[in-house]
């Protein structure tokens, strides 16, 4: 049976790129747990914002299938090293995504609006001093500013704009990002949400939240 997730030994690396860690594994576990729903969802465009090493988008491409099924992948990162590493990781697994070095989805927001059926985001969620946010290199993989929310709060409106009517968003959050408050904020934008995976480690308590548009409430 072919592997359904990316293999660590094939994941490329670079000193300035965040390596797959607990948070990445938790996100991929969430996707695996939701695999039958994802396949039934028949997405056309899938996207990862902040692809880092490429572990997550490669896993998504492996578990969903590829062009043969008419599924296309986009991945962005603000760290150009990360985008190159993602390309190598994807090539090593024989899958493809269209890659763009950009801030969140800058440049795609006009034309890709309403087309993304699956979006996965493992944002920089670690609470840090605000001036660490938006720096170059590996620090961009975790520096999240106050409550670790600075970048998350910028990503959510972009996600709302890019997601299709049937679009789903999988978001990694930390307890200190106030996930409940995030869910309530997204509810105001018309999204329902569910915690797909919850995981506590020595260091942090992670929630993977799935968001989808809730048409019942309209």
């Amino acid at each position: 049976m072919p592997f359904k997730t990316a293999q660590i030994r094939l994941v490329s690396s670079h000193s300035e790129v965040y390596e797959p860690c607990d948070d990445s594994f938790a996100l991929v576990d969430a996707l695996l747990a939701d695999r039958s729903n994802l396949i039934e969802h028949k997405p056309k465009f899938c996207m990862e914002v902040g692809c880092g090493s490429g572990y997550v988008i490669t896993s998504l491409a492996l578990l969903l299938g590829h062009e043969f099924h008419g599924i296309h992948y986009f991945a962005t990162d603000t760290n150009p090293h990360a985008v190159r590493v993602t390309r190598e990781t994807m090539e090593a697994h024989g899958v493809h995504a269209e890659l763009i070095s950009t801030d969140i989805a800058s440049g795609l927001e006009k034309r890709l609006a309403g087309l993304v059926d699956i979006m996965v985001v493992n944002p920089p969620y670690v609470p840090t001093p605000e001036d660490e946010v938006g720096r170059e290199g590996i620090i961009s993989a975790w520096a999240g500013g106050e409550d670790g929310r600075s970048v998350i709060d910028r990503i959510l409106p972009v996600a709302d704009n890019l997601l299709s009517r049937k679009g789903w968003l999988y978001l990694v959050t930390l307890e200190s990002n106030h996930p409940l408050q995030l869910c309530l904020q997204m509810r105001e934008r018309g999204y329902a949400s569910r915690i797909v995976v919850q995981r506590s480690t020595d260091e942090e308590s992670l929630h993977i939240i799935k968001f989808w548009r809730n048409f019942d409430k309209e």
Binding site: E16, I100, S106, G134
Partner: peptide, 25 residues
Amino acid sequence: NKGIPNMLLHEDERGVSHGGCRKSN
């Protein structure tokens, strides 16, 4: 480069301050 478009903007093109980080890994 290598099939990857670079849409990252310089500071004066986006009007948001992004400092550089020179600390070691």
